[in-house]
Design a protein around this nucleic acid. Structure first.
Lengths: 126, 126
DNA sequence: ACTATGTGCAAGTCTGGGCTTGCACATAGT
DNA sequence: ACTATGTGCAAGCCCAGACTTGCACATAGT
């Protein structure tokens, strides 16, 4: 899945730096980008290759330079995925909390062991 | 920044696996989780520690077990960040595209060189 | 107290990936 | 053709982190 690659790519600070620079400025080359960073051009080239593989940037040749630009699609998609998953979790937690409250109300039955799992909400702050 | 940690944590497939399992089921322990995965309990424990550090999960003790649950906040926040950044990029790209079209229309002026090297002043004087 | 089950800690191994250096090739201006 | 600048490839260094094993400690049931 591309999600794997995108997250892995995004997990590196230098690569995020590159992306944000590219996102703020005109298309620029690996050499230009390297000038702004405390790493070699080759390091930047390799980072850009990673970003390119997961379609977070695209490149094109302009004269003797290779210019890179940012591509929003994958980032947007990954963001949506995260937001959606977070929402799912929230729902799940709500359900568990409700079940826990029900369990509380009926305590003293043979379900007592189960009820202990209901402490789920006890661990978190309000 | 927590964004660093969250993305790094999320970039590992096993950790995402753990998160999704926790997101789908009742709170469960490292031992239980390890039974579902092709790795040792200790591996899972270490992964959970990472997830805990960046607040993607929380844990609480229940009897002799330590149960883990998912925490949606950081995931939601990271998702929003991504979506927002992607939107910014789209805007930027639109602007550049417009400028490019304008440049096309006015080609032949002395601004032609300027247009190509908007980043020229960036790498200088460092 | 004894046993079973679960957790916590501490090495230690090993692979991946981030970064560097060095050199060859490509392009543009003179 | 000559030079300056930029890109591409390859080998190698180095460290973070993913995973394991082994053992000690904690808890619950008998």
């Amino acid at each position: 899945m591309t999600l794997d690659r995108v997250l892995a790519a995004l997990s590196d600070p230098t690569r995020r730096e590159l992306l944000e620079t590219l996102g703020r400025n005109q298309p620029c080359s690996a050499t230009t980008l390297a000038a702004r960073l405390p790493v070699s051009r080759q390091a930047v080239v390799q980072h850009l290759a990673v970003l390119r593989d997961c379609e977070l940037v695209s490149s094109y040749r302009s004269g003797k330079e290779v210019l890179f630009t940012v591509r929003p699609e994958q980032l947007a998609a990954t963001g949506s995925w995260m937001t959606g998953l977070a929402a799912t979790w929230e729902d799940r937690l709500q359900s568990l909390k409700r079940q826990a409250e029900l369990g509380q109300a009926e305590l003293g039955r043979d379900e007592a062991g189960q009820a202990e799992l209901g402490q789920a909400e006890a661990g978190k702050d309000g």
